[in-house]
């Protein structure tokens, strides 16, 4: 591990939904600057909810999340948007605007800096060039002027990565980024994600349910079972016994 500088501190985080289901039951851990942290766990373990709490897409029930010195809980309006510019997010279903071109989608990452010009979709030439450069680094330079709905799934997710990188975020949250992709595209997308985070020195939190991908790319791994942290350690510590424990509960449920 590079540095032991804490970027995100999560303490006793609890989240329950209106129906009464408790998704997170007191989660605490730290995220260090510059690392790639993978969160593993069965589906329904609370991985998505955890990530969505970090950038305030879901309001937490109790506890605290501090991102680079700022408490997320209770942030509203402009301050919440400001926090979100520091936190990029990548979704399982890509969530890029299908009817816009690839370059426009990448430029969406800059919206928070634009105000009314952003409403009209008018960006500076510098930002357009930067968007092109990042898309080229993700090997999408031939696709920049295409409409996003003409791309394959893997390409769409790379556009989503470009959009997140355009934000110049301190931390990148990736929620099951390859769950909708075939194995070939999956390892390619994770490779790009890993490479560009290293190059840009961006801290990343990636949730995955495939253990082998986690082992390949993680600096550190956290295991989540039914809303509780049940594993914390390096990829080498995630042995068969630990995996058994992580997924044991799920099998019992079924």
């Amino acid at each position: 591990m590079k540095q032991k500088d804490v970027l995100i501190k999560i303490s006793d985080l609890k989240k329950s939904f209106p129906g009464g289901t408790e998704a997170l039951k007191g989660v605490s851990f730290d995220v260090y600057r510059g690392e790639l942290l993978v969160i593993v766990g069965a589906s329904g373990a609370g991985k998505s909810t955890l990530l969505r709490c970090i950038n305030g897409l879901s309001a937490i029930s109790s506890g605290s999340i501090v991102v680079d010195g700022i408490e997320v809980n209770g942030l509203k309006g402009k301050k919440l948007r400001q926090l979100r510019t520091d936190v990029g997010m990548i979704f399982q279903s890509f969530n890029i605007v299908n009817r816009k071109r690839v370059i426009d989608n990448a430029l969406h990452g800059r919206l928070a800096y634009y105000g009314l010009r952003g409403v009209l979709g008018l960006y500076s030439f510098e930002d357009k060039k930067k968007a092109f450069e990042i898309l080229a680094r993700l090997d999408l330079e031939k696709q920049v002027a295409k409409r996003a709905d003409q791309l394959s799934g893997g390409q769409k997710q790379r556009v989503a990565i470009a959009r997140a990188i355009m934000q110049e975020p301190k931390v990148l949250l990736a929620d099951e980024p390859v769950a909708s992709l075939d194995p070939g595209a999956s390892s390619k997308v994770l490779g790009y994600l890993h490479k560009i985070c290293q190059e840009e020195d961006i801290t990343a939190i990636v949730s995955l349910h495939q253990i082998d991908y986690a082992r390949n790319y993680a600096d550190r791994i956290i295991g989540l079972t039914e809303g509780v942290v049940t594993f914390e350690g390096g990829p080498e510590d995630l042995d068969d016994e630990a995996i058994q424990e992580l997924y044991f509960n799920e099998e019992e449920e079924e």
Binding site: R101, I103, K129, F132, E133, R137, E141, A145, E199
Partner: peptide
């Protein structure tokens, strides 16, 4: 940080994204 050179010149780039 790895730099990727813009493979197009300015005019071509502008035409591409216009």
């Amino acid at each position: 940080m790895k730099k990727v050179n813009n493979p197009l010149n300015e005019k071509e780039f502008k035409a591409l994204i216009s």
